[in-house]
Amino acid sequence: MFEETFVEELATRIGSRVEIATDNNFIEGILSTVTEELVLVIEVSNGYGSSTIMYIAVDAINFVRFPVAA
């Protein structure tokens, strides 16, 4: 059901809405790309299509939450 490693599991969830916490940041967005060292999240800031691309080091991630779709 779940992959053996953290990165492998994240890779199976590309396209999901995520909340990612690091020591000092909390990022909400769409999980876009996962590599061994980096996670790319597209943070949608408003309803007009503008978005921010955030690169997060895998080693810095405290947790990744996958909220239940409303």
Binding site: E3, F6, A21, D23, N62, P67
Partner: peptide, 28 residues
């Protein structure tokens, strides 16, 4: 960052999965 509360679902090689009261899955 802070605490995460819920039911511990699985323990894998380098991470765990917790299911929160809201139903959200959290990978730690």
């Amino acid at each position: 960052f802070g605490p995460i509360t819920g039911t511990l679902l699985v323990v894998k090689c380098d991470y765990i999965v917790i299911v929160e009261a809201s139903g959200a899955q959290v990978l730690v």
